[in-house]
């Protein structure tokens, strides 16, 4: 167990290093000379001498390895550079907008969990009934609805037609309802279907049959045996889905003008504010990797077989 955790931690460090390298490599795709971009933003038509001076100031005249090391050293001090647009440190800009995005993703994640599990269990209990068939159809369609279609549909129905909830901004808690639902719903439907089919699969196992022959209550079998087993692969996926939630938050924030990181990213892409884009990608990847690391450890706690079987399958 400890050995497994140590191995995973080592992997985490290696991946984070790789992530920083790849993010750095992304800068190679920047169109044009970054020094010129910065100068051009100031509104002056830069002369050759200005560009060379700016390159020196930005460290662009050094070798690529030196530039990477310099950049990585700053990262470790949480220095992501300064925004081209505002001139403020990127980290300050991010700190300012992070809570709004966290509010959205955390809310969606919780909503997804509290709806998906009961509905999936309900579908298992109601197996082969019309209730199940209709739930099946609804979850299938919502699962295939892109966040922006769902968001705009909900916005029209609930804000415009029914006038139940406000649509744009984040002034009151009511403002967050639609964005959270939009973000959570397609994912929740995916999970409902997954959890349902997993439970049904586990209920088919030999040990479930044997538990039945021992006359245990169906409730005991479902909740204390089948659910845990059905959940292990799901927990694994949840870490990965968090990535989709983070990605989905960009779209949702853009529909509902939610003043979070996603919206900021879109504005920065429009402004060609590269330090912000890089910082955003790096931050999201780090969060994503860290969460998946925790998920791995948590699964190990759920399924004691994992540390022993890991690596054998590869």
């Amino acid at each position: 167990m400890w050995k497994y955790a140590a191995k995973k931690t080592l992997g985490l460090v290696a991946i984070l290093f790789g992530v920083s390298v790849l993010t750095f490599v992304l800068t190679a795709w920047i169109r044009g000379n970054p020094a010129e971009v910065v100068l051009g933003r100031a509104g002056v038509d830069p002369s050759r001498a200005d560009v060379v001076m700016m390159e020196q100031r930005m460290g662009l005249d050094q070798s690529i390895v030196a530039r990477y090391l310099d950049w990585a050293r700053n990262l470790l001090r949480l220095d992501f550079g300064t925004s081209y647009t505002s001139g403020l440190p990127v980290i300050e800009e991010i700190k300012y907008r992070l809570p709004a995005t966290l509010h959205l993703t955390a809310g969606a994640f919780v909503l997804m969990l509290v709806t998906a599990v009961p509905i999936a269990i309900f579908m298992v209990v109601k197996k082969d009934s019309w209730t199940e068939y209709s739930l099946n159809a609804v979850t299938f369609i919502v699962m295939g609805t892109p966040g922006f279609v769902l968001g705009m549909g909900l916005a029209w129905l609930i804000s415009v037609r029914l006038r139940l909830l406000p649509m744009v901004g984040n002034k009151t808690p009511a403002h967050s309802v639609l964005p959270i639902i939009t973000l959570a719903l397609p994912m929740a439907c995916r999970y409902i279907r997954l959890i349902r089919s997993n439970i049904i699969e586990v209920l088919d196992e030999d040990y479930i049959f044997l538990l039945r022959t021992r006359g245990l209550k169906e409730r005991t079998i479902l909740f204390s045996h089948a659910l845990k087993n059905a959940f292990i692969p799901i927990v694994n996926l949840m870490g990965i889905s968090l990535g989709s939630l983070l990605g989905g938050s960009i779209v949702v924030e853009s529909i509902f003008s939610w003043p979070g990181l996603g919206n900021y990213l879109m504005i920065s892409i429009g402004n060609r504010d590269y330090p912000v884009v890089l910082a955003y990608v790096l931050l999201m990847a780090t969060v994503f990797v860290a969460i998946n690391y925790l998920v791995d450890l948590f699964i190990c706690f759920l399924d004691p077989r994992i540390p022993f079987t890991e690596g054998k399958g590869r």
């Binding site: 991946i15 984070l16 790789g18 992530v19 790849l22 992304l26 795709w29 968090l242 990535g243 989709s244 983070l246 990605g247 989905g248 960009i250 990213l265 892409i269 884009v277 890089l278 955003y280 990608v281 999201m284 990847a285 994503f288 990797v289």
Partner: peptide, 12 residues
Amino acid sequence: AFPGMILSLAIV
């Protein structure tokens, strides 16, 4: 290690 949508957004 990158959430898919975010990586493609960053590349574009």
